[in-house]
Computed example of a mutant assay.
Amino acid sequence: MLARGGAMPDELKFPGDKAFFSSSLDRAALIVHGRNSYEDQPNSPRRQRLILTRQVAALALDPSNPKACLWNPAGASFEAACAFAGVDAGTAAIIGGPGVFAMFLDRYDTFWLSLAPHIRLPGGEACFPGVPERTPQQILASHGLKAGAPIPLDPAEGVTVTPWRRLPASSAGAG
């Protein structure tokens, strides 16, 4: 679970995870998220972003944020949205929510899955559609991603982040 009531609860906010997330976004050329996802950090206003919405037919400038574009995937491709946002190279950081994550399952080069094993969010919002019937790890694997070694972020709390990387086409059946 990654949220409750459309927002990340305080019990899921860990200093090491926050630092990893923030530094990753600082390296991204574009941030992609839904209307309820945001990072609320000092560098947030400087980051170019696409906000998924059904409130526009295809693409529009966000009247409240000069660094943001509104994107309706039903009306424009991701490539068209990137071009509209003025981004033609670099990393796109997909920061959620669940529907946004799911849209990119077959496109991720790497998905960074953070785990806080001692925290439970009964009734929380799952990170992907299909959870809890399947685990996030099963969903990522079913889309051709393979887990790397977990990286400790907050060892005292057991919080880790695991890179799930797309296998090269030539080795997809190997292993």
Rank of each mutant, 00 (worst) to 15 (best):
A93I: 03
L52Y: 03
F20D: 12
A81Y: 03
S24P: 00
D109H: 12
R47V: 06
A80Q: 15
N43R: 10
D109R: 14
T53L: 04
R4E: 14
G90A: 07
E39F: 10
S37K: 02
G6S: 09
A83G: 10
Y38N: 05
S64H: 04
T135I: 07
D17W: 08
I51A: 11
P129G: 02
V100G: 08
K67D: 01
Q48Y: 05
V87M: 07
L70I: 04
A7E: 14
P15M: 04
L105T: 06
R46W: 10
R107N: 00
R134V: 08
D109C: 05
D106A: 14
P9V: 10
T135D: 07
T53S: 11
N36V: 14
Q138W: 05
W112V: 12
P42A: 13
R107C: 00
I31H: 01
E133N: 13
G96I: 08
L25P: 00
A81R: 02
V161A: 04
P63S: 09
I94Q: 01
F111I: 00
V131W: 13
S171Y: 05
A126V: 01
S171G: 00
L12N: 08
I31W: 03
S22D: 15
C69P: 02
I95S: 05
I119L: 00
A76D: 05
A74G: 05
Q48G: 10
F84W: 02
V87L: 09
G6A: 06
R54S: 15
G6E: 09
Q48N: 12
G90E: 09
G173D: 10
T135S: 15
T110G: 09
V131Y: 13
E133M: 11
L61Y: 09
A28P: 01
W71E: 03
R46F: 11
G123N: 12
F14S: 12
C127I: 15
P66Y: 10
A58F: 11
A174N: 13
I95K: 06
S23I: 10
A147Q: 01
E79V: 10
A156K: 14
V161Y: 05
A169I: 11
D40G: 05
A174E: 15
I139L: 15
A29P: 01
A3Y: 05
N36E: 08
T162M: 02
A60K: 08
D88M: 07
A60D: 11
E157D: 15
I139D: 04
T91G: 00
L113H: 12
M1N: 14
S44C: 03
P132K: 04
P129V: 04
T160D: 01
M1C: 14
Q138L: 07
S37H: 05
R165L: 03
A141K: 12
L61P: 09
P73E: 01
G90W: 07
T53Q: 07
G123H: 12
F84A: 03
